[in-house]
């Protein structure tokens, strides 16, 4: 018997594909337009709690892109972060940095977030570039 696909399911599928396309577009947008040099300057905002190569009040950022949230060895994450099952990508980082507490309620990163689209894009570009550092490999 052939499976039937309802109109609603089809719409959801199309919506999902569009969302994926949108996410991919966002990834490309940051990869092509994010200014890692400016992102380095913006990273000064993060160094109260974070460092590229060592855990501090917040986890280290080396290897962040592509890592599952809450899984860096040796860091004591919030339950919310551990259970989020997120993979850090341009899209998920962008959403998290916009509103950490809105995206992952219960996270220990209790800040309002970075509201400027360009600032987030540049900061993420810097975090991506960080993955290529010798000290991050």
């Amino acid at each position: 018997m052939m499976p039937t696909v309802s109109f609603g399911t089809a719409l959801l599928t199309v919506a999902g594909l569009l969302a994926d396309a949108s996410a991919a577009s966002a990834e490309m947008s940051v990869l092509t337009s994010g200014d890692a040099t400016r992102g380095k300057q913006l990273y000064a905002q993060c160094v109260g709690c974070h460092s590229p190569e060592r855990h501090r009040t917040g986890p280290k950022h080396c290897g962040l892109i592509g890592r599952q949230a809450g899984t860096a060895a040796g860091f004591d994450y919030s339950k919310s972060m551990r259970e989020s099952k997120l993979i850090w990508s341009v899209r998920t980082l962008d959403s998290f940095l916009f509103s950490p507490l809105g995206y992952i309620p219960g996270t220990n990163m209790g800040i309002s977030g970075i509201k400027d689209d360009n600032d987030r894009s540049d900061l993420i570009a810097y975090l991506i570039a960080m993955n290529e550092w010798p000290e991050c490999r």
């Binding site: 000064a44 993060c46 160094v47 709690c49 800040i111 309002s112």
Partner: peptide, 17 residues
Amino acid sequence: AGLERGAVSAYAGAIPV
């Protein structure tokens, strides 16, 4: 100075939430 500057950002980010 780097730590103090980062702390200012952290508190600035926390104040609204």
